[in-house]
Design a binder for these strands. Structure first.
Length: 466
RNA sequence: GGCGACCUGGCGAAGUGGGAACGCAUCGGUCUGCAAAACCGACAUGAGUGGGUUCGACUCCCACGGUCGCCUCCA
């Protein structure tokens, strides 16, 4: 069974196949760096990072490329508003983007090209298109001649005849044509030389150039938010396939948008929640679980309630791991066959779901079924140490494929300070003396300090309140 | 106006032409000095509405209603 992914290009699930070098090349459009990224921007980062992770855990080789757009009108505007050079703003925001996404603990992409670092590739690609008469220079700008590329519209299902036929303005031959190179204008403080004069690349050409440079033509997966399908990805196809006469990307994988009560989250609307704030408040595991519990092609409501549910779900998994860790010490000697069966069943269902268009919700469901089986087994008796360790390893293996292995790691919050331990001891003494009023006062004190007391059969347990 | 998606229990959310996963919440139980936490169990005779195809549809087709996205910057 191989992994299949839904492609926007065909409207169907397509088999994922590695390139000739055995590597699955994945390119995802990254952020434009003019402010901190919001939680919506994080969705493709999480989706494609976890996709790569899953492929590698399944023994495939994958190369993930997520670019950084560090030249753009919005960067000029934001820098002007701040009164600093646009290059400085872009550098600062790029660093923040790296810092913020690092908080997720999903690792870095294999390559994160900057537009400013690929100017030669971009100029060469534009030159190629001009040579082929697919582009024309006029007054310092260069435009792509859309009607000269017959397949235009193949990705978004649009037909040229349906497109609005506006006034093309003074420079463009046709209103549909889009800019490959924008000549330097007043107020722009960063520019590059080109055969057509000083200026900067258009928004779409950069991704064509960077994807080809990092992955070659005909790579496996090109991704990004569904809102980029048109015109951005449509234009990328026109540029790259126009220049080479060869397929650009085989599967176009688009994630849906985050949704708020007021509509989708967008910098333009201003209803944003910054990734750094969301992760800071809920922690990386909750944020990743929040994404993984819905399918990447579904719109996903964003709210405190949703994150709160994800947190509760994470807690359920953490508790099962804690249960296993406790069971290692009190192990019996009779293996629990139902537990082993549940382990195998969960792994099979997990992989089936993941292979079917990256079905992370079904994969999560498989994890929860295993969690219940673990809890039931531990309630029934004490499985032997070997089985406990095997199941723990299996569970962590599944979590790791989703980027959630952190749920099995005792967090820093689990380290209980000595003064708290002392309060617990004093409460136990009070309880032993049947001084329940004193015991309850001490419990309130522990709670007030941000810890949660859990009385169990083996005595009290203290964990950091979440 | 053009293109497209979606409508599943209180909420979120999957899969599937023939038993409607999973999570949250709720309720019942176990545990406890009492709680909390944790765990266990229960929880949609039904999938926006109306037709059609089929032995049989939530799952396919059509219509209607509703929600939303793209068509301009957007993950």
């Amino acid at each position: 069974m191989s992994l299949r992914l839904h492609s926007t290009l065909t409207g169907h699930d397509e088999p994922l196949v590695a390139g000739d070098d055995g590597v699955v090349g994945i390119y995802a459009c990254g952020p434009t760096v003019y402010s901190r990224i919001h939680i919506g921007n994080a969705r493709p980062f999480v989706v494609f990072s976890v996709l790569k992770r899953y492929l590698e855990r399944r023994g495939m080789r994958a190369r993930l490329v997520i670019n950084v757009t560090d030249v753009n009108d919005k960067i000029y505007d934001a820098a002007r508003a701040e009164g600093i050079p646009s290059t400085r703003l872009a550098e600062r925001c790029t660093r923040q983007y790296i810092d913020d996404t690092n908080l997720l603990g999903l690792g870095r992409p294999d390559a994160e090209p900057l537009v400013t670092g690929c100017m030669d590739d971009i100029v060469a690609l534009i030159g190629n298109l001009v040579d082929r008469d697919l582009a024309y220079a006029v007054g310092g700008d260069v435009y792509f001649r859309v009607r000269a590329f017959p397949a235009y519209g193949c990705l978004s299902g649009r037909h040229l005849d349906d497109m609005p036929d506006d006034d093309p303005g003074e420079r463009k031959e046709d209103s549909l044509d889009f800019a490959l190179w924008k000549g330097l204008k007043d107020g722009e403080d960063a520019w590059w030389d080109s055969p057509w004069g000083p200026g900067r690349p258009g928004w779409h050409i950069e991704c064509s150039a960077m994807a080809e440079r990092e992955l070659g033509m005909g790579f496996a997966v090109h991704g990004g938010g569904i809102d980029l399908a048109f015109p951005h990805h449509e234009n990328e196809i026109a540029q790259s396939e126009g220049a080479h006469g060869a397929p650009f990307a085989r599967i176009w994988m688009h994630n849906e948008m985050l949704e708020l009560a007021e509509g989708k989250m967008s910098k333009s609307i201003g209803n944003i929640a910054l990734l750094v704030d969301v992760v800071g408040r809920w922690g990386p595991d909750t944020v990743i679980a929040y994404f993984m519990q819905s399918h990447y092609r579904s719109r996903l409501p964003f709210s405190d309630d949703r994150l709160g549910e994800a947190e509760a779900a994470c807690r359920r998994i953490r508790n099962a791991v804690r249960g296993l860790d406790r069971a290692v010490g009190s192990a019996g000697d009779e293996a629990d066959p139902a537990l082993t069966a549940a382990m195998i069943d969960a792994r099979t269902r997990f992989v089936d779901c993941m292979d079917d268009d990256f079905g992370t919700p079904g994969a999560m469901a498989a994890v929860f079924d295993l969690v219940r089986a673990i809890n039931q087994a531990l309630e029934r008796g004490s499985p032997p140490r070997g089985q406990v360790l095997e199941v723990r390893l299996g569970l962590v293996g599944l979590l790791d494929m989703l980027g959630l292995a952190g749920l099995a790691v005792p967090g820093a919050g689990d380290e209980v300070p000595e003064d708290i331990r002392d309060l617990v001891r004093r409460r136990e003494e009070a309880r032993g003396a049947r001084d329940f009023a004193g015991a309850d006062a001490l419990r309130a004190e522990i709670t007030a300090r941000g810890f949660e007391l859990r009385d169990g059969a083996d005595g009290p347990e203290v964990v950091a309140a979440t």
